[in-house]
Amino acid sequence: MDPSNKPKSTAPKDVGRHAHEFFDAARLLLADRFAEARFDPDRGLRVTIIELNDQDKASITNAAEQLGILDWIRIEHADPAALATWERLRHDLLQLQSAEAHLLMRYPTPDPGYRRPPVDIHLSADAETTAADLHHAYGDFVALQVGALPYPPKPQSSTTRRTTAPTDQREPANPAEMHIALEAPLEIRSGQTRTHGLLLTNLGTEAIRVHTNGNLTATILNNSGAVIGGYNGAQITPLIIFTAGPSETIRIPVLVGSASYQPELGYTIPPGTWHLTAPLDLADGRRLTTPALELTITD
């Protein structure tokens, strides 16, 4: 069962096909002492057990042998220090859930048990103080992200600098076909996210159908047109179509975030006058972008 004695090749497909069956058998055998199931880089199967004993090894070995995958099974003891650290961290996460849930963008379910470090925690762009507290308390046990950037900041170079600009090339919407404007002047606090309205007027003779997930998602630009930030978080993905008939004006929600993508700006886009654009995916297959529209970011 020592990983160092395993073959260096990749596990055969039978191992992957039986993975869920094997992991379910291990959970049934171990109950609350089952800590973790995962694939190793070579696609072997690893189970981590709290208070591992010889009977556990024999039972799991037997289950693997019955499935014909014994050579690709690894059994390990859950590190007591990691168990204790996760117990402290999960209570801190529960407190954050209760007091400042808006700061937690993505994090593991804070249930009792075991988490293999580093534990990934994604915080909102305005949660730098919370990130500092977690980093001070847990160090390398946590992998923190604040908005779009890692915490603590990493040394930047031309190869490590983050750019979250869209990689697909889009043509700007033709102003002779559609007029696009914000429904009202837009102000947003640095680090915050809000939904605003975009007005699209169809100037042509055919209907314009815009595919969305319920809203458009804005990207923030500096005065030279370079991408500097935007929304950084998960979204639901239903298909919701907004249709503008000839001479019709429709309102499309646009999600505007102010997380910074540029480390030199900090974790949030600083106060000032900036611009936003949003992608337009049309039903006819065209992939366009709105014109740059002005917004103000405040303290």
Rank of each mutant, 00 (worst) to 15 (best):
P7M: 07
K8D: 03
G16Q: 10
R17I: 11
F23L: 04
D24G: 04
A26K: 08
A26I: 02
R27N: 00
R27K: 14
L28P: 03
L30W: 01
L30G: 11
D32E: 14
D32P: 03
R33L: 05
R33C: 02
A37W: 00
A37T: 09
A37L: 00
R38W: 01
F39G: 01
G44T: 15
L45P: 00
R46I: 03
T48C: 00
L52P: 01
L52R: 14
K57T: 10
K57F: 02
A63M: 06
A63C: 08
L67S: 13
L70S: 15
R74Y: 13
I75P: 01
E76N: 10
H77I: 02
A78T: 09
D79G: 10
H91K: 08
D92T: 09
L93P: 03
L94W: 00
Q95H: 03
L96P: 03
Q97A: 05
E100T: 15
M105V: 15
R106I: 06
R106M: 06
Y107S: 14
P108V: 00
P110C: 08
R115Q: 13
R116L: 04
D120T: 03
H122R: 12
S124T: 13
A127W: 06
A127E: 01
T130F: 00
L134P: 06
L134W: 06
H135Y: 03
A137P: 01
P150C: 12
Y151D: 02
P152Q: 12
P155V: 13
P155G: 11
Q156C: 09
Q156H: 03
Q156E: 04
R161I: 14
R161V: 13
R162C: 05
R162S: 05
A165V: 02
D168E: 04
D168I: 14
E171Y: 00
N174E: 08
N174S: 12
E177H: 10
H179Q: 10
I180P: 04
A184I: 05
H196W: 07
L198N: 05
L199A: 15
E206Y: 06
H211Y: 08
N213A: 10
L216Y: 07
L216P: 04
L221F: 11
N223H: 07
N223D: 13
S224H: 10
S224T: 15
G230N: 09
G230M: 02
N232Q: 06
G233C: 07
G233E: 01
P238G: 15
L239T: 06
L239I: 13
I240P: 06
T243Q: 00
E248V: 02
T249L: 07
I250M: 08
I250H: 07
V254Y: 03
V254I: 15
V254R: 14
S260A: 09
S260T: 04
Y261S: 14
Q262Y: 05
E264R: 14
Y267V: 14
T268V: 11
T268G: 10
W274F: 09
H275M: 04
H275K: 13
T277A: 05
A278K: 09
A278S: 14
D284I: 02
L288A: 08
T289E: 06
T289V: 14
A292T: 12
L293T: 11
L295T: 02
T296R: 14
I297S: 09
